[in-house]
Write a protein that binds this DNA or RNA. Structure first.
Lengths: 232, 232
DNA sequence: GACCGGATTTAGATACGTCTAACTCTTAAG
DNA sequence: CTTAAGAGTTAGACGTATCTAAATCCGGTC
């Protein structure tokens, strides 16, 4: 049996593995889910018993094949829902996260298929994140890095905006910080502000945002760079 | 705080009050929800504490204003979802119940409004049941009775089909037993079979189905009889 | 008016997911 | 090599929702 809460843990662990690599520590998981460390420990024990992850006491966990499949299915639900809400129900990109976060655990396989085909099987969600395919293979991650890993003078293309906060997202969209946009880093100030420039205009970002904006080099720009992001 | 499970209890009590009138007994609720009587007792105590219903020990419960509002909101979600699935995601009328049953507890007010307006605020769901309005006033129930309350020779119009079983629903649709259809009862056989006739054809129904098909007299037919039922 | 049967409630137990408080392990510094 | 800080775990508890088994209530029958 797997519950909505187990799905949240597995999804979170998947994302942490993606960002920092396995093994993932108990506190990182607890923080991400806003629970206490003992709560996370308990749940990790349980997930390990069900062979959804491998657990090394005092060190961390790593998803098994099976655990990863459940994580990917949950993420697929989440991102398809986000895309659907934007495309068919006029949601703005900053509004979709919370709605998708609840619904992702409760839609049927059938529902998933229907919205996927209604959307014509989009490769990415409104934030530029890849939507896992129905076979639940881990998507091949593009060669992207946070904006904050780049230096002044470099020109990059925004791949995805991994920001949750609605207000920040609304601001970023207004500023044109959306997937597909090409930007040049003009300057990184001593206080960490990123001064950016695109065709038309210049804009500034604090470092905290630069951590969550993933980009690829404009040089290494592939065809994927021109993919349409639904609804934006 | 109200949970998905509390919503299910309140919704069930509302439906039982609608069909049999208050007070509603513990076992009826327990049966409808497939739980044991002690489980229902416990939950009813809790709902009474939260002033969602009035409870007379050993006798039964009756929804308060507040409890009824929650029930109606849940039912509104359910029926709007059913209508949306049929209209926009190509579901058949026998497929929508289970999907809506899960999702009804997890959609936001915002989502509710968006699908309602996308559907142009339909008055009824695909089974002909009225959709409570956003202000959560109890809908004025049309003057309908089960088909099984009628006699041979009477002509009636189907108002709603309160059947859950998918296979039965598929059969009924094939047989043209859908909301809005006018039928004449040709004969009720000694074993309870209803032999029906419409413009085109004749068909038979067991009594168990006749209990769940709600009709109004063709004589008393109002304009409401010609309401479009979305997607059928 | 006592009694019986069915409905209802009480009592005690379990599983899940959470908490705080206290303890233990690992690691990096000195 | 020792130790202190921080990460992780154990212990004990709580609230929700469920169960089975046992006790109790209520309405109708004789």
């Amino acid at each position: 049996m797997d519950t909505a809460i187990m799905e949240d843990y597995l999804k979170t662990i998947y994302e942490l593995e993606r960002e920092r690599g396995p093994p993932v520590g108990t506190s990182a998981i607890a923080d991400a889910l806003s629970v206490t460390a003992p709560t996370a420990t308990r749940m990790l024990e349980k997930l390990a018993e069900e062979d959804l992850l491998e657990r090394e006491k005092y060190s961390g966990v790593e998803l098994t094949e099976h655990g990863r499949a459940i994580a990917l299915e949950t993420i697929r639900h989440h991102r398809l829902l986000e895309a659907y809400l934007v495309e068919h129900l006029d949601y703005e990109w900053e509004e979709v996260h919370d709605e998708a976060e609840r619904l992702e655990h409760h839609i049927s396989e059938d529902f998933e298929e229907r919205i996927a085909s209604e959307l014509d099987h989009p490769p990415v969600d409104p934030h530029g994140e890849p939507i896992p395919s129905a076979d639940l293979e881990a998507p091949v991650e593009e060669d992207v890095e946070p904006l904050s890993a780049h230096k002044a003078g470099e020109t990059v293309v925004i791949a995805s905006v991994r920001e949750r906060d609605a207000e920040t997202l609304r601001y970023l969209e207004e500023e044109g910080i959306v997937p597909g946009r090409e930007l040049t880093i003009v300057e990184i100030t001593p206080v960490g502000t990123y001064v950016m420039e695109c065709e038309c205009d210049s804009r500034q970002l604090p470092e905290s945002s630069a951590d969550r904006i993933y980009v690829r080099s404009a040089a290494a720009r592939s065809d994927a760079a021109t993919e349409e992001v639904p609804g934006l």
